[in-house]
Simulated assay, not measured.
Amino acid sequence: MPRIVDHEARRRELTEALWRVIHRDGIEAVSVRTVAAEAGCSPGALRHYFPEQKDLIVSAMDRMSERAGARITALEPTGSPVDRLLAYCEQLVPVDDERRFEAGAWLGFITRARRDPELRELSDRVQRSLRGFLSQALDGLGFDADEVVRLHALVDGLTLHLLLHPGQITPEEVRARLRAHLEGLPRRSV
């Protein structure tokens, strides 16, 4: 009897194998061979799902963006507007292992995207989407949405500090810095 394969689940497993390779060895270690080995399959089996290495990378970037988006969408923050905005922002910085893994892989993707126009467009689209989300969150919670550039820069900067210099700043310090920034944001004028 032929084996029934869940193709979507297999594609997800292969993209997750790519994330692990990037997380462990860096974006420069990504090849069809290394990802196939990480996934426990042959390079030919990987190519069945992703004919080109770029197809795999694009899929992995899309899935990572969807994963973070789903986590944010599932939030139902409570408390003050600052508490709610902080809950959203915490989903964007690597304050735990899951988000550290995601942010490290994403950093690898955007490094590769600097040299590849197709990946750059995807990276730019994700950044525009993130900025749009932050703008909506600011506006929806009564803050001045013009502050979105500063907030986005702070989130990106804290992410880089946590990834590149993990011993120099703790997740608790990141939360405190975010909270202090959010508490100082101007409220939308009525």
Rank of each mutant, 00 (worst) to 15 (best):
R100E: 14
R100V: 08
A103H: 08
G104D: 04
G104L: 13
W106V: 01
G108D: 02
G108V: 01
T111N: 09
T111G: 13
A113Q: 03
R114H: 12
R115T: 14
D116R: 06
D116M: 02
D116H: 06
E121S: 14
E121M: 14
L122V: 13
L122A: 15
S123E: 12
R125P: 01
R125W: 09
V126Q: 09
V126S: 09
V126C: 10
R128M: 06
R128C: 09
S129K: 08
L130M: 14
L130A: 12
L130N: 10
R131I: 08
Q136T: 12
A137Y: 07
A137D: 04
L138A: 00
D139W: 03
D139C: 06
L141W: 01
L141C: 05
G142A: 06
D144L: 04
D146G: 14
E147W: 06
V149D: 08
L151K: 00
H152I: 00
H152C: 04
H152A: 11
A153S: 15
A153D: 15
D156Y: 09
G157W: 00
L158D: 01
H161V: 15
L162D: 07
L162I: 01
L162Y: 06
L162Q: 08
L162F: 07
L163K: 02
L163G: 02
H165F: 12
Q168V: 03
I169G: 02
I169W: 02
T170Q: 03
P171Y: 09
E172S: 12
E172W: 08
E173S: 13
E173F: 02
A176E: 13
R177F: 07
R177A: 14
R179F: 03
R179C: 03
A180S: 11
